[in-house]
Amino acid sequence: MTQPILSVQNLTMHYATRKGDVSAVDDVSFDVMQGDALGLVGESGCGKSSIANCLLRLLPENARILQGAVRLDGANLTTLPEDQMRAYRWKRIAMVFQAAMNTLDPVYRVGDQIIEALHTHIETMTNAEARERVAELFKIVGLDPALMDRYPHEYSGGMRQRAVIAMALSCNPDVIIADEPTTALDVIVQDKLLREMCNIQKTLGMGMIYISHDIAVIAEVSNRMGVMYAGRLVELADTADIFARPQHPYTYALMSAFPSITGPKRELTTLPGEPPDLLNPPPGCRFHPRCPRATSVCARDVPAFKAMDARHSVACWHPVEG
Protein backbone atom coordinates (compact mmCIF):
# COMPACT_ATOMS: atom_id res chain seq x y z
CA MET A 1 0.00 0.00 0.00
CA THR A 2 2.98 2.32 0.22
CA GLN A 3 4.03 2.39 -3.40
CA PRO A 4 1.49 3.55 -6.01
CA ILE A 5 1.11 1.20 -8.99
CA LEU A 6 0.28 4.09 -11.25
CA SER A 7 1.35 7.65 -10.67
CA VAL A 8 0.37 10.63 -12.78
CA GLN A 9 2.51 13.70 -12.25
CA ASN A 10 1.79 17.21 -13.55
CA LEU A 11 0.24 15.88 -16.73
CA THR A 12 -0.50 18.63 -19.26
CA MET A 13 -1.98 17.91 -22.67
CA HIS A 14 -3.16 20.19 -25.47
CA TYR A 15 -5.06 19.58 -28.65
CA ALA A 16 -3.89 21.69 -31.56
CA THR A 17 -6.89 22.93 -33.53
CA ARG A 18 -7.50 25.36 -36.33
CA LYS A 19 -8.46 28.04 -33.83
CA GLY A 20 -5.54 27.47 -31.47
CA ASP A 21 -4.54 25.14 -28.67
CA VAL A 22 -7.22 23.55 -26.50
CA SER A 23 -5.90 23.11 -23.00
CA ALA A 24 -7.62 19.78 -22.35
CA VAL A 25 -5.57 18.54 -19.38
CA ASP A 26 -3.66 20.98 -17.22
CA ASP A 27 -1.20 20.02 -14.50
CA VAL A 28 -3.05 16.94 -13.21
CA SER A 29 -1.42 14.70 -10.59
CA PHE A 30 -2.81 11.64 -8.82
CA ASP A 31 -1.75 8.19 -7.65
CA VAL A 32 -3.50 4.84 -7.90
CA MET A 33 -2.59 2.37 -5.15
CA GLN A 34 -2.90 -1.39 -5.30
CA GLY A 35 -6.57 -2.24 -4.87
CA ASP A 36 -7.69 1.36 -5.28
CA ALA A 37 -10.82 2.25 -7.19
CA LEU A 38 -10.31 5.84 -8.22
CA GLY A 39 -13.29 7.71 -9.60
CA LEU A 40 -12.75 10.67 -11.90
CA VAL A 41 -15.86 12.77 -12.12
CA GLY A 42 -16.55 15.86 -14.16
CA GLU A 43 -18.74 17.27 -16.87
CA SER A 44 -18.33 16.79 -20.60
CA GLY A 45 -15.19 18.44 -21.88
CA CYS A 46 -13.51 18.59 -18.48
CA GLY A 47 -10.65 16.41 -19.69
CA LYS A 48 -11.45 13.18 -17.89
CA SER A 49 -11.48 11.05 -21.02
CA SER A 50 -8.40 12.85 -22.32
CA ILE A 51 -6.56 11.71 -19.21
CA ALA A 52 -7.55 8.11 -19.90
CA ASN A 53 -6.28 8.43 -23.44
CA CYS A 54 -3.05 9.96 -22.16
CA LEU A 55 -2.50 7.02 -19.80
CA LEU A 56 -2.79 4.53 -22.65
CA ARG A 57 -1.25 6.91 -25.18
CA LEU A 58 -4.24 6.41 -27.44
CA LEU A 59 -4.21 10.03 -28.51
CA PRO A 60 -5.37 11.61 -31.74
CA GLU A 61 -2.76 13.09 -34.04
CA ASN A 62 -3.23 16.66 -32.88
CA ALA A 63 -2.73 15.92 -29.18
CA ARG A 64 0.52 17.01 -27.52
CA ILE A 65 1.63 15.97 -24.06
CA LEU A 66 3.46 19.15 -23.05
CA GLN A 67 4.75 18.05 -19.68
CA GLY A 68 4.31 15.56 -16.92
CA ALA A 69 4.82 11.86 -16.44
CA VAL A 70 2.71 8.73 -16.13
CA ARG A 71 4.75 6.31 -14.06
CA LEU A 72 3.99 2.61 -14.04
CA ASP A 73 6.69 0.47 -12.39
CA GLY A 74 9.27 3.21 -12.76
CA ALA A 75 8.72 3.51 -16.51
CA ASN A 76 7.43 6.83 -17.83
CA LEU A 77 4.64 6.01 -20.25
CA THR A 78 4.58 9.49 -21.78
CA THR A 79 8.08 9.26 -23.22
CA LEU A 80 8.25 5.53 -23.96
CA PRO A 81 8.81 4.69 -27.63
CA GLU A 82 5.70 3.31 -29.30
CA ASP A 83 7.01 -0.27 -29.64
CA GLN A 84 7.77 -0.49 -25.91
CA MET A 85 4.47 1.19 -25.08
CA ARG A 86 2.71 -1.70 -26.77
CA ALA A 87 4.10 -4.06 -24.15
CA TYR A 88 2.42 -1.99 -21.43
CA ARG A 89 -0.84 -1.25 -23.16
CA TRP A 90 -3.38 -3.99 -22.54
CA LYS A 91 -0.94 -6.18 -20.60
CA ARG A 92 -0.29 -3.81 -17.71
CA ILE A 93 -2.90 -1.14 -18.25
CA ALA A 94 -6.18 -1.91 -20.01
CA MET A 95 -9.23 0.09 -20.90
CA VAL A 96 -12.99 -0.47 -21.09
CA PHE A 97 -14.52 1.99 -23.50
CA GLN A 98 -17.89 3.64 -23.40
CA ALA A 99 -19.16 2.19 -26.66
CA ALA A 100 -18.72 -1.56 -26.38
CA MET A 101 -20.04 -2.04 -29.91
CA ASN A 102 -17.03 -0.16 -31.29
CA THR A 103 -14.57 -2.26 -29.31
CA LEU A 104 -15.94 -5.57 -30.56
CA ASP A 105 -15.50 -6.38 -34.23
CA PRO A 106 -18.91 -7.50 -35.57
CA VAL A 107 -17.49 -10.06 -38.02
CA TYR A 108 -15.57 -12.17 -35.46
CA ARG A 109 -16.84 -14.37 -32.65
CA VAL A 110 -16.50 -12.68 -29.27
CA GLY A 111 -14.37 -15.48 -27.83
CA ASP A 112 -12.01 -15.42 -30.80
CA GLN A 113 -11.44 -11.71 -30.33
CA ILE A 114 -10.30 -12.23 -26.75
CA ILE A 115 -8.15 -15.20 -27.81
CA GLU A 116 -6.61 -12.96 -30.46
CA ALA A 117 -5.78 -10.37 -27.80
CA LEU A 118 -4.28 -13.10 -25.61
CA HIS A 119 -2.12 -14.42 -28.45
CA THR A 120 -0.72 -11.01 -29.33
CA HIS A 121 0.42 -10.39 -25.80
CA ILE A 122 1.34 -13.87 -24.60
CA GLU A 123 2.96 -15.63 -27.55
CA THR A 124 3.57 -18.92 -25.77
CA MET A 125 -0.09 -19.62 -25.12
CA THR A 126 -1.67 -22.50 -27.02
CA ASN A 127 -5.14 -22.33 -28.48
CA ALA A 128 -6.60 -24.73 -25.93
CA GLU A 129 -5.09 -22.77 -23.06
CA ALA A 130 -6.46 -19.56 -24.50
CA ARG A 131 -9.98 -21.01 -24.80
CA GLU A 132 -9.77 -22.21 -21.25
CA ARG A 133 -8.68 -18.75 -20.13
CA VAL A 134 -11.57 -17.12 -22.03
CA ALA A 135 -14.05 -19.50 -20.41
CA GLU A 136 -12.60 -18.58 -17.04
CA LEU A 137 -12.85 -14.85 -17.86
CA PHE A 138 -16.46 -15.26 -18.98
CA LYS A 139 -17.28 -16.84 -15.65
CA ILE A 140 -15.58 -13.97 -13.82
CA VAL A 141 -17.67 -11.32 -15.59
CA GLY A 142 -20.88 -13.34 -15.25
CA LEU A 143 -21.29 -14.58 -18.80
CA ASP A 144 -22.10 -18.14 -19.82
CA PRO A 145 -18.85 -19.58 -21.34
CA ALA A 146 -21.03 -21.19 -24.02
CA LEU A 147 -21.56 -17.69 -25.40
CA MET A 148 -17.95 -17.33 -26.49
CA ASP A 149 -18.67 -18.75 -29.92
CA ARG A 150 -21.40 -16.23 -30.63
CA TYR A 151 -21.11 -12.99 -32.56
CA PRO A 152 -21.37 -9.54 -30.94
CA HIS A 153 -24.79 -8.80 -32.49
CA GLU A 154 -26.23 -11.79 -30.63
CA TYR A 155 -25.28 -10.13 -27.33
CA SER A 156 -27.38 -7.56 -25.51
CA GLY A 157 -25.84 -4.22 -24.55
CA GLY A 158 -24.99 -5.36 -21.05
CA MET A 159 -23.51 -8.63 -22.27
CA ARG A 160 -21.32 -6.80 -24.75
CA GLN A 161 -20.01 -4.54 -22.04
CA ARG A 162 -19.27 -7.65 -19.94
CA ALA A 163 -17.36 -9.19 -22.85
CA VAL A 164 -15.32 -6.01 -23.19
CA ILE A 165 -14.50 -6.18 -19.50
CA ALA A 166 -13.46 -9.82 -19.93
CA MET A 167 -11.19 -8.70 -22.73
CA ALA A 168 -9.65 -6.00 -20.55
CA LEU A 169 -9.06 -8.56 -17.80
CA SER A 170 -7.54 -11.11 -20.17
CA CYS A 171 -3.87 -10.26 -19.59
CA ASN A 172 -4.19 -9.63 -15.85
CA PRO A 173 -3.44 -5.91 -16.04
CA ASP A 174 -2.36 -3.90 -12.98
CA VAL A 175 -4.74 -1.08 -13.80
CA ILE A 176 -8.02 -1.01 -15.69
CA ILE A 177 -9.47 2.26 -16.88
CA ALA A 178 -13.23 2.21 -17.34
CA ASP A 179 -14.34 5.24 -19.37
CA GLU A 180 -18.08 5.73 -18.80
CA PRO A 181 -18.56 1.93 -18.81
CA THR A 182 -22.31 2.02 -18.22
CA THR A 183 -23.44 5.32 -19.72
CA ALA A 184 -25.20 3.72 -22.67
CA LEU A 185 -26.96 1.12 -20.52
CA ASP A 186 -30.32 1.10 -18.79
CA VAL A 187 -30.37 1.52 -15.07
CA ILE A 188 -31.08 -2.12 -14.08
CA VAL A 189 -28.33 -3.42 -16.36
CA GLN A 190 -25.99 -0.68 -15.16
CA ASP A 191 -26.56 -1.66 -11.56
CA LYS A 192 -25.82 -5.34 -12.21
CA LEU A 193 -22.70 -4.53 -14.19
CA LEU A 194 -21.30 -2.09 -11.65
CA ARG A 195 -21.80 -4.61 -8.88
CA GLU A 196 -19.95 -7.18 -10.94
CA MET A 197 -17.08 -4.79 -11.69
CA CYS A 198 -16.75 -3.86 -8.04
CA ASN A 199 -16.60 -7.53 -7.07
CA ILE A 200 -14.00 -8.34 -9.70
CA GLN A 201 -11.88 -5.39 -8.67
CA LYS A 202 -12.02 -6.36 -5.01
CA THR A 203 -11.36 -10.04 -5.70
CA LEU A 204 -8.48 -9.53 -8.10
CA GLY A 205 -7.12 -6.53 -6.19
CA MET A 206 -6.14 -4.55 -9.24
CA GLY A 207 -6.17 -0.77 -9.56
CA MET A 208 -9.21 0.67 -11.24
CA ILE A 209 -9.96 4.11 -12.63
CA TYR A 210 -13.64 4.81 -13.20
CA ILE A 211 -14.43 7.80 -15.34
CA SER A 212 -17.98 9.10 -15.22
CA HIS A 213 -20.10 12.23 -15.33
CA ASP A 214 -22.45 10.65 -12.80
CA ILE A 215 -21.42 11.32 -9.19
CA ALA A 216 -23.88 8.72 -7.94
CA VAL A 217 -22.08 6.00 -9.91
CA ILE A 218 -18.71 7.21 -8.66
CA ALA A 219 -20.05 7.32 -5.08
CA GLU A 220 -20.97 3.66 -5.30
CA VAL A 221 -17.96 2.16 -7.04
CA SER A 222 -14.93 4.13 -5.91
CA ASN A 223 -13.04 4.52 -2.66
CA ARG A 224 -11.04 7.52 -3.90
CA MET A 225 -12.38 10.21 -6.06
CA GLY A 226 -11.11 13.14 -8.07
CA VAL A 227 -13.26 16.01 -9.27
CA MET A 228 -12.25 17.66 -12.53
CA TYR A 229 -13.23 21.02 -13.89
CA ALA A 230 -12.11 22.53 -17.20
CA GLY A 231 -9.01 20.36 -17.57
CA ARG A 232 -7.84 20.63 -13.98
CA LEU A 233 -8.19 18.32 -11.01
CA VAL A 234 -9.80 20.53 -8.36
CA GLU A 235 -10.32 18.08 -5.52
CA LEU A 236 -8.99 14.62 -4.66
CA ALA A 237 -9.87 12.66 -1.55
CA ASP A 238 -11.49 9.49 -0.23
CA THR A 239 -14.97 9.22 -1.68
CA ALA A 240 -16.69 9.12 1.69
CA ASP A 241 -14.72 12.15 2.80
CA ILE A 242 -15.60 14.20 -0.30
CA PHE A 243 -19.28 13.46 0.07
CA ALA A 244 -19.22 14.27 3.75
CA ARG A 245 -17.02 17.37 3.55
CA PRO A 246 -16.64 18.76 0.03
CA GLN A 247 -14.13 21.60 0.13
CA HIS A 248 -13.97 22.95 -3.40
CA PRO A 249 -16.95 25.16 -4.29
CA TYR A 250 -17.33 23.31 -7.60
CA THR A 251 -17.57 19.95 -5.85
CA TYR A 252 -20.12 21.53 -3.59
CA ALA A 253 -22.10 22.82 -6.54
CA LEU A 254 -21.96 19.49 -8.37
CA MET A 255 -23.34 17.65 -5.35
CA SER A 256 -26.02 20.15 -4.55
CA ALA A 257 -27.23 20.10 -8.16
CA PHE A 258 -27.48 16.34 -8.25
CA PRO A 259 -30.98 14.93 -7.71
CA SER A 260 -31.52 11.72 -5.81
CA ILE A 261 -34.55 9.49 -5.43
CA THR A 262 -33.79 8.53 -1.86
CA GLY A 263 -33.99 10.59 1.27
CA PRO A 264 -36.08 13.69 1.75
CA LYS A 265 -36.49 15.78 -1.36
CA ARG A 266 -33.97 18.58 -0.97
CA GLU A 267 -33.53 21.68 -2.99
CA LEU A 268 -31.28 21.57 -6.01
CA THR A 269 -29.12 24.55 -6.74
CA THR A 270 -28.11 25.92 -10.09
CA LEU A 271 -24.58 26.86 -10.89
CA PRO A 272 -24.65 30.12 -12.86
CA GLY A 273 -22.86 30.42 -16.19
CA GLU A 274 -21.32 27.85 -18.50
CA PRO A 275 -18.05 25.88 -18.41
CA PRO A 276 -15.22 27.90 -19.99
CA ASP A 277 -13.97 27.56 -23.52
CA LEU A 278 -10.70 25.65 -23.20
CA LEU A 279 -9.32 27.38 -26.27
CA ASN A 280 -9.09 30.43 -24.12
CA PRO A 281 -9.44 29.40 -20.46
CA PRO A 282 -9.88 32.13 -17.84
CA PRO A 283 -6.69 33.13 -16.02
CA GLY A 284 -6.10 32.09 -12.45
CA CYS A 285 -8.55 29.53 -11.14
CA ARG A 286 -10.61 28.27 -14.07
CA PHE A 287 -13.72 28.11 -11.92
CA HIS A 288 -13.57 31.71 -10.72
CA PRO A 289 -16.10 33.22 -13.20
CA ARG A 290 -18.78 30.91 -11.79
CA CYS A 291 -17.59 30.71 -8.19
CA PRO A 292 -19.54 32.34 -5.37
CA ARG A 293 -16.39 32.69 -3.27
CA ALA A 294 -14.09 34.15 -5.90
CA THR A 295 -11.96 37.14 -5.04
CA SER A 296 -9.37 39.08 -7.00
CA VAL A 297 -6.64 36.57 -6.21
CA CYS A 298 -8.68 33.80 -7.90
CA ALA A 299 -8.75 35.71 -11.16
CA ARG A 300 -5.02 36.39 -10.99
CA ASP A 301 -3.19 33.31 -9.71
CA VAL A 302 -3.67 29.62 -10.27
CA PRO A 303 -4.40 27.97 -6.91
CA ALA A 304 -1.92 25.27 -5.97
CA PHE A 305 -3.20 21.73 -5.55
CA LYS A 306 -2.42 21.45 -1.87
CA ALA A 307 -3.12 18.82 0.74
CA MET A 308 -5.63 19.85 3.40
CA ASP A 309 -4.85 16.67 5.27
CA ALA A 310 -3.05 13.43 4.44
CA ARG A 311 -5.68 12.17 2.03
CA HIS A 312 -7.60 15.27 0.95
CA SER A 313 -6.21 17.77 -1.57
CA VAL A 314 -7.94 20.81 -3.01
CA ALA A 315 -6.97 23.43 -5.59
CA CYS A 316 -8.74 26.49 -4.24
CA TRP A 317 -7.81 29.82 -2.70
CA HIS A 318 -10.89 29.81 -0.49
CA PRO A 319 -11.84 26.21 0.26
CA VAL A 320 -15.04 25.58 2.16
CA GLU A 321 -14.04 24.65 5.71
CA GLY A 322 -15.10 21.18 6.83
Binding site: V187, I188, Q190, D191, K192, L194, R195, D214, I215, A216, V217, A219, E220, T239, A240, F243, A244, M255, F258, S260, I261, T262, G263
Partner: peptide, 18 residues
Protein backbone atom coordinates in the same frame (compact mmCIF):
# COMPACT_ATOMS: atom_id res chain seq x y z
CA UNK B 1 -36.50 -3.18 -9.26
CA UNK B 2 -36.13 0.04 -11.20
CA UNK B 3 -36.01 2.14 -8.05
CA UNK B 4 -33.63 -0.26 -6.36
CA UNK B 5 -31.20 0.00 -9.25
CA UNK B 6 -30.79 3.78 -9.25
CA UNK B 7 -27.37 4.67 -7.86
CA UNK B 8 -27.39 6.92 -4.81
CA UNK B 9 -25.02 9.89 -4.54
CA UNK B 10 -24.12 8.96 -0.99
CA UNK B 11 -21.28 6.50 -0.32
CA UNK B 12 -22.56 5.79 3.19
CA UNK B 13 -25.64 4.03 1.82
CA UNK B 14 -25.22 0.48 0.60
CA UNK B 15 -28.11 -0.54 -1.61
CA UNK B 16 -29.48 -4.06 -1.89
CA UNK B 17 -29.41 -5.65 -5.31
CA UNK B 18 -32.66 -5.32 -7.26
Amino acid sequence: ALLASVPVPDPSIKRQAA
